[in-house]
Design a protein around this nucleic acid. Structure first.
Lengths: 199, 199
DNA sequence: ACCTGAACACCGTTCAAGT
DNA sequence: ACCTGAACACCGTTCAAGT
């Protein structure tokens, strides 16, 4: 009996504490440093305990990715809302800067989010989270199409180039091959907008 | 004394055999399945033997990445050379298709090539290989600029959007989030070319 | 329902010793 | 110079057993 609070046998919120610690490891030491045993050790629980909440390591990674998509969605939504002007170009610029910021500030998380092969099983709820994150960008494109600001056609198809370009910029930046500045992002968006002009 | 050839104590070309086996594992089971011990086992050498040729696992991955960049460079060079017409658009299309083909056919290798953080140390020769791979695309852009086909300016900066877009398409395809067809690539290139038009 | 402890089959890395 | 064998400190996963 010490002054410390006694750890109950039933931890109570092990799942969320695992995710919390995992995110800290991800941010500070990268995806490669994630170890279920270490997480359990730090939380003060047996190495087999996480098994109750995540079937395996991949399940934990999927949960982290899902959470990441949710947070990305919030960032993108507010970026569109807070853009300096309601026209397409300024909004896409705001979106792009927000996306690049998120990607570079959460490099390891992004790696997990876009890890090769969204598994067919877990893909269910993870894919849904991914789609939700990109609702704001899609709505922006659809709106600009309705206003005749950009080329018509399937919004997903039309916005694919822009989406891919941002994804690529983020990735190249994170792998240390280029340095992404707000200026470079603005220039890239300018060309993307030109490419999407009607006619 | 059997009919088998006797394994000499000094293997002779352990380094290249390690790389060869590693690439097979990469292609068939992904980067996560790569194990130095397993490679050594399959080659028939002790688990400590690879240490002589690769300081650690990362050194092997770096060597694989460097080789990957070399092969990508070959593919891109011949794509430009074999394009249907010498103008910018058809050549960029050929380049894009070749890039996407390489990326999707060697998904795990691409993952290794663009793994987060090109380490400061090994980056030396790896970064050089990366730059060599993109010489052909850069030359294409510079040539098109000289011919007045696309906007002037630093070729690296000008081609960044296109490069990033292709990288993004490849990555999204590899992570199973989109399906990349030749048609989609052609459409993306079309918009990129429009965005690069002078004026 | 949730967690523990021991066990299994792996890892990467190091290092004295062999040829 | 190049490789081996044993050792160290880890992993993820499984499963009977505890509370």
């Amino acid at each position: 009996v010490t002054t410390e609070t006694v750890r109950p046998y039933h931890h109570g919120n092990l799942r969320s504490e695992l995710l919390e610690h995992a995110e800290r490891v991800l941010a500070s030491r990268g995806a490669g440093a994630l170890s279920l045993r270490e997480l359990a050790r730090e939380i003060g629980v047996s190495h087999a305990a996480p098994r109750r909440h995540f079937a395996d390591k991949q399940a934990l990674l999927d949960a982290l990715a899902e959470d990441g998509f949710d947070r990305l969605g919030v960032a993108l939504r507010s970026a569109v809302a807070e853009a300096p002007a309601p026209a397409f170009a300024p909004r896409l610029t705001a979106l792009a800067k927000s996306y690049i910021r998120f990607a570079t500030e959460h490099a390891a998380l992004l790696e997990v989010m876009f890890a090769v092969k969204h598994r067919p099983g877990a893909g269910e709820s993870l894919a849904a989270a991914g789609e939700r994150a990109f609702e704001a960008p899609l709505a922006l494109v659809a709106g600009a199409q309705a206003a005749g600001e950009i080329v018509p056609g399937d919004p997903e198809r039309v916005s694919m180039v822009a989406w891919a370009a941002l994804q690529g910029l983020a990735m190249l930046a994170n792998s240390g091959m280029i340095e992404v500045t707000d200026e470079l992002v603005a220039g890239a968006v300018e060309r993307l907008v030109l490419g999407l002009r009607p006619r």
